[in-house]
């Protein structure tokens, strides 16, 4: 009681936000998890919805595709992002312009980036035309017709959209490394690659952790890009959950969402247990 009396003003300020999150985020998530354990026709508690899901080929494909697109996308984003961030840290002519141009995809909605990449990866798209002009192919390739090619297309589309964020996160990390560390390593005669692997990478670890977590979670939940670029031929967990919902099968949709949530939670636990024993640093 004393606590409430002393802090009534703060509690009053925080209350609406907490109530909204509780009512419209936490409660729905619990509802979804509960729904997934109820049988569709009888309503009995049990795993029948999950049995149904795992018996479907599309759903198993969705899990594999979701994990695959995250692995491929994240690897590409980290390597390219690190290269861009390191080049933006050096001084060269036209750096300001390059920085602005690199940030360009940030000003393009995700949905729209899907549409533009449709023009590039379409069967009559610009990539096929480029390859044709270069004499690499003679017949157009159907990039978005499913399978492994489609995973790559979506990973590239996702990377294009998020590279600015990855670059900015890594650049902030690079800029927080004090320059005297580099001076000291130069005096000790370290080569460029030695400096990179022994100084830059370890000191950049908090930023890399932040990037991987933010990106992996977003990538597991990928929804808009596959909806535009893959249709139903390449299912992902989120789009699969939507499809089940659209077929009026709420229980299966809930179960697919629950599995997606599980994957995110397991990923976070594994990551913090084995890769990074620190924590997410706020405000890095």
């Amino acid at each position: 009681m004393k606590f409430i009396k002393k802090h009534y003003f703060e509690i009053l300020l925080v209350l609406p936000l907490s109530a909204y999150i509780l009512g419209f985020t936490i409660l729905p998530i619990i509802k979804t998890i509960l729904l997934s354990f109820h049988d569709k026709s009888t309503g009995a508690l049990g795993f029948s919805t999950y049995q149904y899901l795992f018996s479907k080929k599309d759903f198993n494909m969705a899990i594999i595709n979701t994990v695959a697109v995250t692995l491929v996308g994240l690897t590409f984003q980290l390597i390219t992002g690190l290269f861009i961030a390191m080049s933006l840290k050096t001084d060269f002519k036209g750096k300001g312009l390059v920085r602005s141009l690199v940030l360009l995809p940030m000003g393009v909605p995700t949905l729209v980036s899907g549409v533009t990449l449709l023009y590039i990866f379409g069967t009559q798209g610009y990539l096929n035309e480029l390859l044709f002009k270069l004499g690499i192919i003679t017949k157009p390739i159907a990039w978005t017709s499913g399978g492994i090619k489609n995973i790559f297309v979506i990973a590239i589309a996702d990377s294009w959209k998020v590279l600015p964020i990855v670059v900015l996160l890594l650049l902030a990390g690079l800029e927080s490394i004090p320059s005297d560390v580099y001076e000291a390593s130069a005096i000790d005669g370290a080569s460029k690659s030695q400096t990179f692997f022994n100084i830059t990478l370890p000191l950049l670890k908090p930023s890399i952790t932040m990037t991987i977590i933010l990106r992996a979670v977003d990538s597991f939940r990928i929804f808009e890009l596959p909806k535009i670029l893959a249709g139903r031929v390449t299912p992902f967990l989120a789009t699969y959950a939507y499809d089940e919902y659209a077929y009026n099968n709420a229980n299966a949709s809930a179960a697919a969402s629950t599995i997606l949530l599980m994957i995110i939670v397991i990923f976070m636990i594994l990551y913090f247990k084995f890769v990074d024993k620190g924590g997410v640093e706020y405000g890095k």
């Binding site: 999150i21 729905p28 998530i29 979804t32 939940r221 989120a238 959950a241 919902y245 997410v280």
Partner: peptide
Amino acid sequence: ILSLFFTRMFPNVGIALPISVT
């Protein structure tokens, strides 16, 4: 702040389903 961060990690299809029913 950390709990705010975690609410952002929930899959939105999982939230959208009961929301749309409600």
